[in-house]
Computed example of a mutant assay.
Amino acid sequence: MISLLLAADAVAKLGAAVGGGLAAIGAGIGIGKIGGQAMDAMARQPEKMGDLRSSMIIAAALVEGVAFFAVIIALLALFV
Results as ranks from 00 to 15, higher is better:
Ala23Asp: 10
Gly32Arg: 03
Asp40Gln: 14
Ala7Glu: 13
Gly32Glu: 02
Gly30Lys: 14
Leu75Gly: 01
Leu5Phe: 06
Phe69Gln: 04
Ile57Trp: 00
Met56Lys: 03
Gly65Asn: 09
Asp51Ala: 11
Ile57Asn: 01
Leu52Tyr: 09
Ile29His: 00
Asp9Leu: 14
Ile2Trp: 06
Ala67Gln: 05
Lys13Asn: 12
Ile57Gln: 06
Ser3Asp: 14
Asp9Cys: 10
Met39Leu: 15
Val66Tyr: 06
Gly35Leu: 11
Gly26Cys: 09
Ser3Tyr: 11
Val63Glu: 05
Phe79His: 01
Ala60Lys: 07
Ser3Pro: 00
Ala12Asp: 10
Met39Val: 14
Gly30Asp: 12
Val11Thr: 08
Ala17Gln: 07
Met39His: 02
Ala41Ser: 04
Leu76Pro: 11
Leu62His: 06
Val63Leu: 12
Leu5Cys: 06
Ile57Lys: 02
Val18Gln: 08
Ala8Val: 13
Ile34Gln: 06
Pro46Asn: 10
Phe79Leu: 11
Val63Arg: 00
Ala24Tyr: 04
Ala43Phe: 11
Gly35Ala: 15
Leu4Glu: 08
Asp9Lys: 15
Ala61Phe: 09
Gly35Met: 07
Leu76His: 04
Gln37Thr: 15
Ala10Glu: 08
Ala67Val: 12
Gly50Asp: 13
Ala27Thr: 06
Gly15Gln: 01
Met56Ser: 11
Ile58Lys: 12
Val71Asp: 06
Gly21His: 03
Ile34Asn: 03
Val80Glu: 04
Gln45Gly: 00
Leu78Lys: 13
Ala12Cys: 09
Val11Ile: 11
Met56Pro: 01
Ile34Asp: 02
Leu5Asp: 14
Asp40Gly: 11
Ala27Cys: 12
Ser55Ala: 15
Ile73Thr: 02
Met1Arg: 01
Gly21Ser: 03
Val66Pro: 00
Lys33Ala: 11
Ala12Arg: 14
Ala59Glu: 11
Ala74Ser: 06
Asp40Leu: 12
Val71Glu: 10
Pro46Phe: 07
Ala24Cys: 11
Leu75Glu: 02
Asp51Phe: 04
Met1Glu: 03
Phe69Gly: 06
Ala38Lys: 00
Ile73Arg: 01
Ile73Gln: 00
Ala16Trp: 13
Val18His: 04
Lys33Phe: 11
Ala8Ser: 13
Met1Asn: 02
Val71Asn: 06
Ala43Met: 08
Met39Trp: 03
Gln45Glu: 12
Ile72His: 01
Ile31Ala: 12
Met56Ile: 15
Ile72Trp: 02
Glu47Ile: 09
Ser55Ile: 03
Val63Trp: 00
Ala27Gln: 04
Leu5Trp: 03
Ala27Asn: 05
Gly50Ile: 07
Met56Gln: 13
Lys33Arg: 12
